[in-house]
Design a protein around this nucleic acid. Structure first.
Lengths: 153, 153
DNA sequence: AATGCAAATGCAAGGCAGTTGCAAGTAGTG
DNA sequence: CACTACTTGCAACTGCCTTGCATTTGCATT
């Protein structure tokens, strides 16, 4: 009785990749698409469990693995804890600012080092295929506190 | 009966940080100092178990945590697997090239984006305190194979 | 619409990196 | 040397993630 259309929003995409279109896969893709930021498997699991019908955590992981192997999504690792993050592969290059105060993640759209990588490619004996840049610091809100507190690190 | 001198090589340093100088702590610092690259807790554990007297894995982890909290070492996360890496904090800024072919890690000494961070600091409402850059690709040795095989990504 | 089959899923158990509680050992102090 | 607080080993445990297996489901074919 719900959104049959909606549910198969990604059918073509999935079939094109040679995998079946299922309720869970569609839901996961949808969540990732809606989210501004990378999500953990657990976040997806909880949202899905509440929102749609129940889903098993292992299904979430397997689905994410499948998507990652098809390059539909990108898996990365958060720096501080060991949790993996998943986001849609927009095939656009993107970096984030990670606030060490409140752990907020802020996207920056243009890659500040794109051309630098080009230059570097020519200087070193190494075939650069990609890079990951994480920038740490304090966001607008945390700045204030930090200025009154900070000392070490 | 061994290297009493050697063993207390880091005594001063440790005491200065307010922690006791022990056989294990000295040994771990020594290994990290000798190593050109970040090591996992497990690598340290195995080396130490064979080399000096036996050590418990939990001691390795606790020691590494202690060192990290004193900023003697730096903990980071390898991108592909979930293992944490530890290296001496040289207080020098350093980046690595990670070969996705053979997983070799190559150091690059100068930070290619230092001044870029400076520029960025002024452009955005975010107090940058640090950054991490990982560059992926194929090293000299893996390049050859890659050229004959590669296609995607 | 019914059938068949491979792929997808749920469930429960397992694996692995890292953590914790506690008793025993040890460094540093007087 | 004795004392105390910090360290360590040991074993059990946690949390994230994976796997084996029986069941279900998507989808192509009849």
């Amino acid at each position: 009785m719900i959104l049959l259309d909606e549910n198969s929003k990604y059918k073509e995409l999935l079939n094109r990749e040679g995998i079946k279109s299922t309720r869970h896969r569609n839901a996961i893709l949808e969540l990732l698409e809606e989210s501004e930021f990378p999500l953990t498997a657990e976040q997806l699991f909880i949202t899905l469990r509440d929102k749609t019908a129940s889903i098993d955590l292992s299904t979430v992981y397997r689905t994410l693995d499948t998507f990652a192997s098809k390059n539909l999504i990108v898996k990365s690792n958060r720096a501080d804890d060991g949790k993996a993050l998943y986001e849609l592969n927009h095939n656009e290059h993107k970096h984030h600012l990670l606030c060490v105060g409140c752990h907020k993640l802020i996207s920056i759209d243009d890659c500040p080092i794109g051309e630098l990588m080009q230059t570097l490619k020519n200087k070193i004996d190494f075939d650069i295929t990609g890079h990951k840049l994480e920038i740490y610091g304090y966001c607008h809100d945390c700045k204030k506190y930090n200025h009154t507190l900070s000392s070490d690190t």
